[in-house]
């Protein structure tokens, strides 16, 4: 299936992942071509091709098992594909490319016995930063996140929120060209969430390409430019968020009218009617103008609104409700 600007591959109804693309940068900072990765007899990623434009804020959404962690680890060269090629920042050598990558894993850990400053200095050194540059960067980020007074304290003395901010700083300390964030807001209170969200957007403004993996559809929808979906390691969808929404956007109408519910069944395009408080939601196929025309002939229409589906709705439509349950339960577990 193909939609303008959106490639829609065949997608079975189980597990999905979603990537979101930038609107228009011609440069690609990450390029996967026909990448396959097997774990024994299980194929985690199959012939995956992917291109991440420079400067994009690129969402990666999906429940467990879709291959997103494997894909991230291959991009980071923690594991290597069985076949296919991966280019990160062009043809840069693996070690040099990794120095320009920042990574915030979903499950986080810090050296509890190290001081905040020493630990951040260690991560900066591993990314190849000179000690003077590292010191300046550490002080700057600690100040930005109001952690300066904690800089000599051991990590074990920090609260959970502060530890997560320190971990976030560690992932960006070396001014990465590409930042990969796996559930960056997991377990954060609203204040810290906003602080990190602002930092992410600031990094994007300064040219950092951001890959954003999350189970929280609303956050992805609010922050990301474009979407990429995989199902059981196979690419099923990619494109900008607007393009994807417009593709799935004509399938739902919010209706208030004085006609009988039974009359809706006689409209050929309508296949589902959901009773909501104060209105009815019609799910249909085909031209909404034809639906409207038929409604007018059957009664008086007070409200007729073509609803654009949320990313959450699209996800359920593609993956099915079971996939969403899996995704939600995973989110709750991580957040707990």
């Amino acid at each position: 299936m193909s939609i303008s600007g959106v490639t829609l591959a065949a997608f079975p109804s189980k597990l999905f992942g979603v990537f979101v693309f930038s609107k228009g940068s011609p440069l690609s900072v990450i390029q996967l071509s026909d990448v396959t990765k097997n774990y024994g007899k299980h194929t985690a990623v199959e012939k995956l091709s992917l291109s991440v434009p420079a400067g994009s804020l690129y969402g990666f959404i999906g429940p467990n098992g879709s291959g997103k962690t494997t894909t991230i680890r291959m991009i980071l060269r923690i594991i290597h594909p069985d076949s296919g090629t991966i280019e990160v920042l062009g043809n840069l050598a693996a070690s040099s490319a990794n120095d320009r990558l920042g990574y915030l894993p979903e499950e986080r850990g810090l050296y509890k016995k190290l001081s905040v400053r020493r630990m951040l200095g260690y991560y900066a050194a591993l990314k190849g930063m000179a000690s003077n540059d590292a010191r300046i960067a550490v002080e700057g980020w600690l100040q930005k996140f109001e952690l300066t007074q904690w800089s000599s304290k051991k990590i074990e003395s920090l609260s959970k929120g502060m530890s997560q901010k320190v971990q976030f700083i560690a992932s960006i300390i070396a001014h990465p060209k590409i930042l990969i964030l796996d559930e960056p807001f997991s377990g954060l209170d609203p204040v810290n969430t906003e602080a990190i969200r602002e930092a992410i957007l600031h990094l994007q403004d300064s040219g950092t390409t951001i890959i954003f993996s999350t189970h929280d559809m609303s956050t992805a929808e609010r922050m990301c430019d474009s979407v990429f979906m995989i199902h059981q390691g196979v690419k099923v969808l990619d494109g900008t968020l607007d393009e994807i929404k417009s593709q799935f956007g004509t399938g739902s109408i919010q209706l208030r009218w004085d006609g009988a519910r039974e009359q809706l069944a006689s409209i050929r395009e309508v296949h589902t009617v959901i009773d909501c408080e104060g209105y009815q939601e019609l799910q249909f196929d085909g031209d909404p103008q034809r639906v409207l025309h038929q409604l007018i002939t059957k009664g008086s229409v007070q409200r007729f609104e073509i609803a654009q589906p949320s990313l959450h709705d699209i996800f359920i439509r593609i993956a099915g409700p079971k996939a969403m349950d899996s995704s939600d339960s995973q989110s709750q577990r991580i957040g707990a």
């Binding site: 980071l76 894993p105 499950e107 850990g109 810090l110 991560y123 591993l126």
Partner: peptide
């Protein structure tokens, strides 16, 4: 301990195993 505390995955994004 580093594996249990999830420090390792963070480190090997910067250095090879």
């Amino acid at each position: 301990e580093e594996k249990i505390q999830k420090i390792s995955e963070f480190l090997i994004s910067s250095v090879t195993p």
